[in-house]
Amino acid sequence: MERRSLLRAAVLGGSTAAFGGSLWRGAAHAAPAQPGTGPYGPLSAPDTNGIRLPAGFTSRVVARSGQTVPGTSYTWHNAPDGGACYVDGSGWIYVSNSEINPSGGASAVRFSATGSITATYRILSSTRQNCAGGKTPWNTWLSCEEVSLGYVYETDPWGTKPAVRRDAMGRFKHEAAAADPVRKVIYLTEDETNGRFYRFVPTVWGDLSAGTLQVMVAGTGTSGSFTWANVPDPDGSPTATRSQVSGSKSFDGGEGCHYADDTVWFTTKGDNRVWQLNLLSNTYELAYDDSLVSGTAPLTGVDNITGSASGDLFVAEDGGTMEICVITPDDVVAPFLRVEGQSASEITGPAFSPDGTRLYFSSQRGTSGSSSGGITYEVRGPFRS
């Protein structure tokens, strides 16, 4: 707490640049986002689901752990976590991980063009503590095991093809994944206090069965240049992948990861930061740090992250005040929604429907504070395009 107070004082007293720059313009050493008025305005009183939303937005419950999903005979999984959406004809699919160990896995919900639930089914079984993951350009879901020597599983959101374990993507405490179709790589975060940031370079883009695992190499500061180095032994035994490359950069608890427009963002929960890598200049910097804000930090407990068509980032809180906060391209951070009465939970799996009008997410432990109390929601409204 003392360190953060000192850093905040230094920013406020010593640098007008702390309030300038833009995350998306890729300016060198742009300042971390600052609290301000968000694009959607203040939060209203809690609705019937206990969610505080801006004016014009509504919520509904899609599924509850241990209960049959409405309109289907399928029982929703415990501890819903990372998720993504896929086009399905005139409708769409939302996939969701289950962060329990053992028997984690993932499930999917299919929606019609009107948003009605038409089917729910299992897409991955018999895995461990499936936390986050990522969507591929070829429309598969990468489900990541958040355990020591965990694997990445490539799954079919339609549930027709069997899931495949992708050993070449390395064995470590996997968290999230983000695909970069320009450089033809998959970025990976590691949920360790001294975790690393990786990328997997497939031998053939679109086929994750073989390739090279690389780790980010950089200095110890919060900005600078970076390179990539091959990880000699991706299976992480006997030496952990994070300890194999001298000069690889340590990150305190890697969480969510999102790619767009030659930029990749990822979060670290140990220091409540959002990191930004400019992939054109091979430089990195902070997009957000709760210790470098003026006044009270609106975003704490940073976790899963996604982006919208407007370039806004939506960052979910693990704890904090149970909010999803928005970080705009103008470097403003503000609450977008807040879940009331669920302080023993965390928000997981934010993902937009293909048309950008609906945001899906879960409260992993709901009102009970138990993995069996998870609730998956949909928020609908006038999102910026």
Results as ranks from 00 to 15, higher is better:
Thr16Ile: 14
Arg338Gly: 01
Thr203Tyr: 13
Ser209Gln: 13
Gly219Gln: 11
Gly115Asp: 05
Phe266Asp: 00
Thr16Trp: 13
Asn194Glu: 07
Lys184Trp: 06
Pro232Ala: 02
Gly13Arg: 14
Thr306Gln: 05
Ala176Arg: 03
Ala316Trp: 00
Gln129Arg: 14
Thr283Gln: 09
Asn101Pro: 06
Val69Gly: 01
Thr239Ile: 07
Val109Ile: 11
Val109Leu: 06
Phe19Trp: 12
Thr357Asn: 10
Ala163Arg: 03
Ser112His: 04
Gly236Ile: 08
Thr68Val: 14
Gly170Met: 06
Gln244Tyr: 09
Gly41Trp: 04
Ile186Ala: 01
Thr222Ile: 09
Tyr360Lys: 11
Gln67Met: 10
Val164Leu: 10
Gly369Phe: 05
Val87Met: 13
Gly14Tyr: 09
Arg8Thr: 11
Ser223Thr: 09
Arg338Glu: 10
Arg199Glu: 01
His258Thr: 07
Pro46Lys: 07
Ser5Trp: 10
Ala240Ile: 04
Cys131Ile: 00
Asp355Lys: 06
Ser291Ile: 09
Ala113Cys: 08
Ile123Thr: 07
Lys161Phe: 08
Val87Ala: 14
Gly91Glu: 03
Glu190Ser: 07
Gly369Cys: 04
Pro298Lys: 11
Pro35Cys: 06
Gly66Ala: 12
Ile100Glu: 03
Val326Tyr: 01
Thr120Met: 05
Leu142Lys: 02
Thr296Ala: 11
Gly104His: 04
Ala218Gln: 06
Trp24Val: 13
Val245Pro: 11
Ser44Arg: 13
Arg25Pro: 14
Glu175Ala: 08
Lys173Leu: 11
Thr239Ser: 05
Thr300Gly: 07
Ile117Ser: 02
Cys85Ser: 15
Ala179Cys: 13
Gly295Arg: 08
Ser308Asp: 11
Thr155Tyr: 00
Gly105Lys: 02
Thr239Leu: 04
Asp207Pro: 04
Thr160Met: 08
Pro181Thr: 09
Arg64His: 06
Gly105Asp: 03
Trp24Leu: 13
Gly82Leu: 00
Val95Ser: 00
Asn97Phe: 04
Gly254Phe: 03
Phe226Cys: 07
Arg4Thr: 12
Asp330Ala: 11
Thr16Gly: 15
Arg380Asn: 12
Phe200His: 03
Arg60Glu: 15
Gln276Lys: 07
Val62Phe: 06
Val332Ile: 13
Asn130Gly: 11
Arg165Ala: 15
Ser368Ile: 10
Asp318Asn: 08
Arg64Asn: 05
Thr75Asp: 03
Ile123Asn: 01
Tyr40Gly: 05
Val201Ala: 13
Ser209Pro: 15
Gly36Pro: 05
Ser73Thr: 12
Pro354Asp: 03
Ser372Gln: 11
Pro238Tyr: 05
Ile93Thr: 10
Leu313Cys: 05
Asp88Glu: 12
Asn97Arg: 08
Leu277Asp: 02
Ser385Arg: 07
Thr48His: 09
Arg242Glu: 03
Asn139Arg: 09
Arg25Gln: 15
Ala334Pro: 14
Trp92Gln: 01
Ser223Leu: 06
Glu154Pro: 01
Leu23Gln: 10
Gly320His: 04
Asp290Ile: 07
Asp156Lys: 09
Trp76Met: 11
Phe352Tyr: 11
Glu378Gln: 14
Thr376Phe: 10
Phe383Asn: 01
Phe197Tyr: 11
His174Ser: 12
Pro32Ile: 12
